[in-house]
Amino acid sequence: MTPNAPDSAAEPLIEVNSLVRHFGKQKVLDGVSFKVYAGDTFIIMGGSGCGKSTLLRHLIGTEKPTSGSIKIFGQEITTMRAEALQKLRGRYGMLFQSGALLQSLTVAENVALPLVEHTQLDAGLIDTVVKMKLEQVGLTGHGHKKPSEISGGMKKRAALARALALDPPLVFSDEPTAGLDPIMTAVVDELTQRLTQKIGATVVVVTHDMNSVFRIGTRIIMLGTGPNQGKIIAAGTPEEIKAHPNPAVQQFINGDPEGDGTDDSGELLYRETLLGINDTGKYSRSAIQSSKP
């Protein structure tokens, strides 16, 4: 279910083919294929634990797949040597789900780090850029604090500022708005939109937030849970996703806690697999245990 190319002549920026990843016996990614084109705001959505962050890790090359291929900027990264991968990494930014700010540096030093490492700018100029980046994410005046001294949402935004420090043409963003208030969510969404529309960047966003999905998304894929773990169960434009016939997709979009058993494709409903509710309506022990982090 690869989304059709908006312009089939254009080279995709990211091309993923039959990506499979096992963790022990668990098949976390199971034949995932999709393409991301320049200028897209590509959304990856799906239930908690369905493998979204794992998919992103494969895209940035910090995890190696069991099988399958990933091409970024036309280059196969699954077999790439460390040095070539490092060069490629200069061209994309990544916001981790946990922020992953360096605890030993202040917020401003974190944002400055890519600039210090990869540019020849002098200290004054770096300072200016950092101030500007922090302002964009609403963190003016918090630059001197250590990551342990700011809130979860602020960490997220600081990490976003760091991911954008070098103005990369490709940005990966793992739940950029999780833990943010509605206004900050809108600010971050707007920032994401500005990246694609003003700077011409391409953004891959993992998110749970349906408002964000339809506000910023131009292409969407949804990963399945339960028996469809690791498979793409829906792909398309926001309109196509809104009108998608799969009840699991509709349930996810509408945030509906109620489902009615399995549908005809044998799709276990989202809530059942997530909460581990079996036919008798009781929580099944194995599901609860297996959902432990």
Binding site: Y92, G93, Q97, A100, L102, P114, R162
Partner: peptide, 12 residues
């Protein structure tokens, strides 16, 4: 806390 991974991704 994924800091090492973050360094790698920043090409550091």
């Amino acid at each position: 806390s994924e800091e090492i991974e973050a360094l790698e991704v920043m090409a550091i």
